[in-house]
Each structure stands twice: as structure tokens, then as C-alpha cells.
Design a protein around this nucleic acid. Sequence first.
DNA 1: GTATCTGAAATCATATACGATTTATCGAGT
DNA 2: ACTCGATAAATCGTATATGATTTCAGATAC
Lengths: 233, 233
Amino acid sequence: MSAETLRPVESKSQQAYRFIRERIDDGRYVPGYRLVLGQIAKELDVSVVPVREAIRRLEAEGLVTFERNVGAQVALIKETEYLHTMQTLAVVEGAATALSAPYLTPADLERARDINERMRRTLDDFDPHRFTELNLEFHSVLFEECPNPHILDLVHRGWNRMRMLRDSSFSFVPGRARESVAEHEHIVELIEQGAEPLEIELAARRHRTATLDAMLAYQAAHKHPTPAPVAAR
Amino acid sequence: MSAETLRPVESKSQQAYRFIRERIDDGRYVPGYRLVLGQIAKELDVSVVPVREAIRRLEAEGLVTFERNVGAQVALIKETEYLHTMQTLAVVEGAATALSAPYLTPADLERARDINERMRRTLDDFDPHRFTELNLEFHSVLFEECPNPHILDLVHRGWNRMRMLRDSSFSFVPGRARESVAEHEHIVELIEQGAEPLEIELAARRHRTATLDAMLAYQAAHKHPTPAPVAAR
DNA sequence: GTATCTGAAATCATATACGATTTATCGAGT
DNA sequence: ACTCGATAAATCGTATATGATTTCAGATAC
């Protein structure tokens, strides 16, 4: 049995899926970017068939839109779409955090605190990108032990959605970061004290809702002309 | 411009999707049913390529599992899977109902009451199938006005999931139906009184959680294989 | 009787080919 | 200069073909 045939390499459609997904996730393919089947196929040195399958999957996941006889592009996220995503995330992340709480060890909580501390340190000499990164890391610690894989999956999807907007105009609000760090500490304390699941859930939910509200207020105050006309194709 | 070419008929992959989806929904394809590409293609008189795409989509939606070089089958739902689905539905349906509440008209509430009344009448001379049908209808009235399409979509998916188990052993508990009807009335009253969103949400969630608990208790009492070690709530 | 092997049949995965549709280009007419 | 229309180019949608993998039935060995 030769070593090179032991592992049945991933299928080409899977390969195509990862290829595209990777690029959407890290921002190389921005919302609106056009996914030309033949072009991607050539880059991967496969035929268009597996690429189409990959795109169908991405479409079902909501990351890509695919119009008949026109083609696929990375899903554009309009402002209302974004608000809906945030609201959904508030709900499912709240639930995930509450369900996860009983399984968190003192070590987990310490880790969460540590991350939050690093976030606090980025407050002076502020780096939004770094802050966002740590923010996900912090929340991940809290919800990742959620024993319900469906809910956990929904949380991941929500965060991915938001990540696609990393560089968008409405992903950040100046004053909010400091409050955020304080709220993080509060959530950790609740979990530590073994608070009621519902209390934890609502705290986590409020944390996100507050971010959303802050963004809305900020935008209203700054009268953003248009929510950033995304570079298409 | 000839009449027959005016409408650009749905694509074949779309057609295949609907074909399969329909059959899963109405139970002709039960969980575990094997979806053979060539066979479905022949039935539809198309090639396998669009059928594959349809199956990829169904896979992403969780209705179908698709294993490399082995093929696709309607997703099997194990007991823990079912519990997770119910729990997720409890969360998202609660949120959807609360978000929907402000948009419900008196006519909507009347309709809900009417449906619930019909459910009550099926209690004597009990028909589980009919009851389940009305149950979805009732809840649909309450959550369908939810302005957040993401959350609404999650609710639909959850119900679809449950519908796939229509005939399964753990889809029904004898005593539960009567309580259910009473809880329905309570939820309608809350909405009618313009109760706090959170109160509505939790009432709707409890209603579903109670169903779940009843099922677990029933199974435990009847010594079903595994009593489900899942941490519900 | 059970286990293992072997070849055939079924089925999957993907490449290639080609017609259909959309989009872009460019010149004629106003 | 602008619109319109025709043509070309790009791209999509799907059928077909073929090699690869898995499954299964029957044969053989123990």
C-alpha cells in the first residue's frame, strides 16, 4: 500500500469550495466580487463542474448570490441585511453563551479575562482591526462550549457574515470599544458566579444589541450618504 | 415574440431541487432514503449535472447527506439531533414570535384562536396528523410577521426538520396535546395585551421547551434506548 | 457455516463539448 | 454627441463520455 494513495485527497468540489471560501473570508473577494466559473476553474486546474457545485453550496450558505445565465458574485450586504444579521446573532449568540456557560472551566474564564485585558490595552493607541480580532476570540471562548451544534453553527455563520464587512463603513463606532470591554467583564463575572442561564443569555444579547444601537446612532449622527457603494466586479 | 419563449422556465438544477425537496417534505423520501443521481436524472429527463447541484444545495441546507463516492441520502435524524433541533427552534421561534407580535392584527389573532379552537376539537377522537398540521398553522400565524427574514428562515428550517420526523417514534406524546392548546391561548392573550416582547418570547420558548421535556419524560418512562444526555436549556 | 477473495455491476466524480444567453463593442443613423 | 441595432465575445447551462470507486454476488478456502 503506497503512501501517496492512503489519503483520498479532498474532492475537487471540496477543494473549490475551500478556495473560494478562503478568499471570501480573508477579504480578497469583497462583497460584489464576481465569481467567473471558467476563471476559477482554470486557476484551480479543474473543470467548471466542481466549481459550480462549490458555488451552489456557498449560495445556500448565503455567502454568494448566483443568478441564472449571469453568474455568481460574493453576496452584497445591504444595511438592513446587516442589521438583521446582527439581530439574529444577538439571539443565537446569547443562547449559545448561556448554554456554554456551565461547561466553562476556571481556566476558560481566565483566558477570556486575559483576552479582554489585551483588548483594554489596545484602547489607547487604537487598532480597530486588532480589536475586532480579539473581540471574536473573546466571545469564542464563551460560546464555543455550547453543546448544541446547530446553535453553535448559527453563531459561526453570523460572525462570518460580520467579518465580511470588516472594512465596511458601518463596522465600527469610536466610543463603543471602551463600553464593550466593560460589558465583557460583566458577562464573565455572571458566568463565574453561576448566574441563571437566562441572565447570562440576556447579558450577552444586550451586549450585542448595544453595539448595534451604537452603530445606528453613530450613523444617524454622521449622516452617512450611502452605506458604501461596494466595488462590483 | 412568441408566447412559449416569454417565460424563461426554471433552470434544470432548480427543477431538480424542487423535485427532491418536494418529496422529502411530503414524506415520499423518508430519512435514510438513498438519492441515486442517475436515477433521479432519468426520472426528470435531465443529466446528472443539475441533479448534483440540487443535491449540493440540499446538503448545505442539512436535508441531505452526501458522502464522497458513496452518494446522497435524506439526512438521518438521530435522537440527539432531534433534541438539538427542538432546542434551536425554541430559541429562534421564541424570538420570531416576539418580533412578529407588534405586527399582528386583531384579525390575525382571531385566526390564531380559530385554529386553536379547531385543535381543541380534535382532542377527543384524536388525530395526531391533523393536530400537527393545525399546530404548524397556528404558530405560523404568530411568527410569520417577523420582520427579520433570517430569523424567520431559521424557524422555517426548524419546522421542516421536525416535519421530516412526522412518523417517527419520538414525535408525539399522549398527554401533551391538551396542555399545548391551553398554552396557545395564553400566548395569544399575551400578544393581545401588548405584553413585553421578552415575556412573549419566553412564553413561546417555554411552550416548545415543555413539549421537548414532555417527550423526554415520555421516552424515559417507556424505556426508549437512550434517555438523551443532552443538556436542554 | 463463516470468512475471504474476485470480478461484475452500480454508482460516483469530473472533463470536455456545444448550444443558449447575456454582455460588450462598434458603427450607422439621427 | 447620442441612441439604436447588429455583431462579436464572454459566460453560462447542460448533455455526454469516461475513468475511478464502491458495492455486491458468487465462488473458494478453511
